[in-house]
């Protein structure tokens, strides 16, 4: 069966004492029998390990912290989207969930 090509943006690629869910989520998506994913990493810090795991993450972009303001973060997502045509964005940090939920309609419009 031909797999469906999609681009998935994922955050939570950190791994300190408390690992982020990003890489485990990516591993599941990569094992999909249905999708052939391109994985775009959204990273807040320069040393988030997932950005350097090229077998898991195809391309990574730095993004501003949600605390810097919703508009700034969404503007950066818009910029990344023009290059990557993101189909699905999976936020994995508790602290960013509200920002993305609040921006649901803006993000949906970007996909059109």
């Amino acid at each position: 069966m031909m797999k469906t090509k999609i681009t998935v943006a994922v955050s939570g690629l950190n791994n300190v004492d408390s690992p982020g869910p990003g890489i485990p989520v990516v591993r599941g998506i990569r094992e999909s029998t249905f999708f052939e994913p391109r994985i775009v990493g959204l990273v807040y810090e320069n040393l988030e390990p997932g950005a350097y795991m090229h077998d898991h993450v195809d391309k990574s972009y730095k993004v501003p912290y949600p605390s810097e303001g919703t508009d700034i973060l969404i503007e950066r997502i818009r910029e990344i989207h023009t290059k990557e045509a993101i189909d699905v964005l999976i936020p994995n940090f508790d602290s960013e969930l509200y920002t993305f939920m609040k921006s649901e309609s803006v993000l949906k419009q970007l996909r059109r």
Partner: peptide, 24 residues
């Protein structure tokens, strides 16, 4: 926690690929 946890790959290993289902 309103998101998938860092141990979600255990579910994949146990036969439920929840990240794939989430994308679908």
């Amino acid at each position: 926690n309103p998101r998938l946890p860092a141990w979600v790959y255990l579910a994949v290993g146990a036969g439920q690929n929840l990240p794939e289902a989430l994308v679908k």
